[in-house]
Design a protein around this nucleic acid. Structure first.
Lengths: 338, 338
DNA sequence: TAGATGCTCCAAAACGTTTTGGAAGAGAGC
DNA sequence: GCTCTCTTCCAAAACGTTTTGGAGCATCTA
C-alpha cells in the first residue's frame, strides 16, 4: 500500500488551503472555476479518495444500516435470512447505503452487539429481524430512541414501526383446509414459542381446531428447532403415537422437509398416506410439491429498507405498522385422509 | 437520542484530563487504581460508550471486512451466497470482526464499490467471491496491495491467496459415472463462461466425454443463468432436440431443480426415464434425491475468514492456495438410460 | 543533600474530514 | 476618495479518539 493522498496532500501540491481543496471537490460555488479545475486534476492525478471514516466522524452519519444475525452454524442457511437480507441490501443500495453485519449467538453477546453498534455510532439505523415476544433488543432500541424497524411484532407495549406476517391467519386457513378435507388428527410441529412468529402460528392452529370442532390435544404438538433435522425428529415422535396423525403441519418449510424425509423413509406416501404442509414457501417447497404459505420475504425486505430510511430521515411514516396475510399454496403434499 | 457521553464529558465530570480518562478506561497501568475506579464509575453512570468511528480514524483500522455482493433481485436467494456469508460471518465474529456488505450490480458500479470501500478505509480486508476468469476486482486489489482473499481462481497471472473447488475434477467424475451407467447422450447446462467455476465445470464435462470416447456435441450444451427458471428453460430446449439426451447435468443445483421441474411437468420420471444431476448440494438437493457434488461451502467460508485475518495481520500463509475436490453424492435422480 | 527512580497525570498532536466565520482584494456606485 | 458588494480564499474549530513526550512530585539511595 503506497501512502494515501489526503486533502492535505492536494493542498500542498496545489498551494491552496485544505479548506479550499475540500470545498472545491465538494462542489461549493465559492471557489473559482479555474482553481477547482486545478484541484480536481491534482486530485485525479494523486488518486485521491476521501477517507470515509473521517467523513463519518465529522458528518455524524455513516450511510450504513446494521443487522445482527444469529450465528449458531449453518442454521443461517435458513432461506429466510438470506432472502430478507437480499431484499434489504438490494433496496438500501439504491440510496447509497451499505449494511453492517454482526453475527452473534442469541443472548447477552447479541445485545452487547446492538449496544456497540448503536452507541459506537457505526450505523444510522437498524433492522431487527425475527422478533421475540418480549424482545429486549426492541426494548433497548426504543428506549434509546434509535432509528429502527422490525420484521415482526412483540408483546411489548411500545410504539415502533414494523412489518409482520399474519402467521395466525395463515395457519388458521391452512388447518381449516385440512379439516375440510376430512382430517381429524392434525399434528403440529411448532416453532420455539418465544419467537413471535412461532407463537402466532401456533395460535392459528389452536383457533382453527376450536372453530372446526376438533379438539386441541397437546400430545399432537411438538416444538422443533426450525431445521430439517428437527422436523424429522418431531415427525418421528408424532408417528410413534398410539393413534398417529393423518396430517402434519410444520411451522416452517425446513421442518416440513425434514418431516417428508422421515415419512418417506418409513414408506409413507406424502399426500396419500399422510398429508404434510409447511410455512414460508422456500424455493425447495415448489420443487417438492409442498403445500405451504407464501410470504413475499424479499419484497418485505425492500419495504423494511424504505421504512427504515424514512425513519432515519425523520419522516412521518404513512403506514408504520403493516401486517401481511400470507397466501395459501395448495400442492400435492396434501390430500384427504387415507 | 439524548446527548452522548464522550471522554470529554467524563473528564469534566471527574476533573481528570481526557488523556487520563482514555488511559484509565483502556487499562493502562500509568493511572492510579483509585482514579481508575472513579473514572470507571463515572463512565458507567454516564453510560459512556466509545465512538467507534473516531477510534477507527485514530487507529487506522476498522475490525471490519468487506464483501460486495451482486444485486439483481432474488437471485441472491442462491444458497451459495448465504452459506458462504454465514461461514465467513460466523468465523470472523469470534475474532471480533464485523462484515460490511455492499450490494451492487456487476459492472462499473461494482468496481466503484470496491474502490470506495478500500480507498475510503472502511474495511481492513476483503473477500472476493465467485471470481471471474479475468477478474478486474482481483486485478485492482492485487495492484493496490490491499489485503484480500478470493473464493475462486482467475486466469490472471497474479499471486494472491484463494480457496477454490476443483469443479473440473468434480464434473469429470460425475460425467464418468453417467457414462459408466451407459449414458451416451449427456447434455450439460453450463454456467456463464466468464465465471471461473462455470468455465472449469464445463471443462470437466468436455474432458470426461473425450476420455470415455463420447463425442462432444455443442448442441447438447446450453448456458443457463444459474436460476431455477433458467434451468427449466434450458431443459426445454434440450428436450426439443431431435434426439433428446438421456441425462442432463446442470452446472449448479438450482438449475438442476428447474430441470427436474420441467421434466416432471412433461411426465418424465426422474432417474428412470431420464437422469438429472447438479452441483453444490444445496439443502433441497438431499430432499429431492438429486445427485450432485458437495463442497463444504460453509466451512470454506470459515477458512476464508481465517486466511483473510492472517493476511491482514501480515502473517505468512502456510497454504495460500487451496483447491478442494468436491464429493460426488449419488442419489435417486440418476439411473441407467431408459 | 543531590541525584535517581517511580508513580500519576496531562497538553498537544494526530487521524482526515467539514463547517464556521471571517479576511483580502477587486470592482461598482456615489 | 469612500463605502458596499462580490468573489475567492483560508485559519481555526470541530467530530472523538489514541499516542507521544514529557512534567510534577514523592520517595529512595548514596
Amino acid at each position: 500500500m503506497n501512502e494515501r493522498a489526503t486533502l492535505k496532500t492536494i493542498a500542498k501540491a496545489t498551494g491552496y488551503s485544505i479548506t479550499t481543496v475540500s470545498r472545491a471537490l465538494a462542489g461549493y460555488d465559492d471557489v473559482a472555476e479555474a482553481t477547482r479545475a486545478v484541484i480536481q486534476s491534482s486530485a485525479q492525478q494523486l488518486g485521491y479518495f476521501p477517507n470515509l471514516t473521517a467523513r463519518q466522524l465529522q458528518k455524524q452519519r455513516t450511510d450504513t444500516i446494521g443487522i445482527i444475525l444469529p450465528s449458531v452454524g449453518p442454521r443461517f442457511a435458513d432461506p429466510y435470512f438470506s432472502l430478507i437480507l437480499a431484499g434489504i441490501g438490494d433496496e438500501i443500495a439504491v440510496s447509497g447505503y451499505d449494511i453492517l453485519i454482526s453475527t452473534r449467538p442469541p443472548g447477552p453477546a447479541e445485545l452487547e452487539a446492538y449496544r456497540s453498534i448503536v452507541e459506537g455510532q457505526r450505523v444510522d439505523g437498524i433492522v431487527v429481524i425475527r422478533t421475540r415476544l418480549e424482545d429486549e433488543r426492541i426494548a433497548y432500541l426504543a428506549e434509546r430512541g434509535f432509528p429502527f424497524v422490525a420484521f415482526g411484532r412483540t408483546t411489548l407495549d411500545l410504539d415502533y414501526p414494523y412489518i409482520d406476517e399474519d402467521g395466525e391467519a395463515g395457519t388458521y386457513e391452512l388447518i381449516l383446509h385440512l379439516a375440510q378435507l376430512g382430517h381429524e388428527r392434525i399434528a403440529y410441529i411448532a416453532a420455539p414459542q418465544h419467537l413471535t412468529f412461532g407463537y402466532n402460528r401456533l395460535k392459528g392452529y389452536k383457533r382453527a381446531l376450536d372453530d372446526t370442532g376438533l379438539v386441541y390435544h397437546p400430545e399432537y404438538v411438538e416444538v422443533g428447532d426450525l431445521t430439517r433435522r428437527g422436523g424429522s425428529a418431531a415427525a418421528e415422535k408424532l408417528l410413534a403415537k398410539p393413534l398417529p396423525p393423518t396430517a402434519i403441519v410444520a411451522a416452517n418449510d425446513l421442518m416440513a422437509l425434514g418431516t417428508m424425509n422421515h415419512l418417506q423413509q418409513n414408506g409413507l406416501r406424502i399426500g396419500i398416506d399422510i398429508s404434510v404442509a409447511g410455512f414460508d414457501d422456500i424455493p425447495a417447497a415448489e420443487a417438492l410439491g409442498l403445500t405451504t404459505l407464501n410470504q413475499p420475504i424479499f419484497r418485505i425486505g425492500h419495504q423494511l429498507s424504505q421504512m427504515l430510511l424514512a425513519v432515519i430521515e425523520g419522516q412521518h411514516l404513512a403506514e408504520p405498522k403493516l401486517v401481511l396475510k400470507p397466501k395459501l399454496l395448495i400442492r400435492a403434499s396434501v390430500g384427504p385422509p387415507a
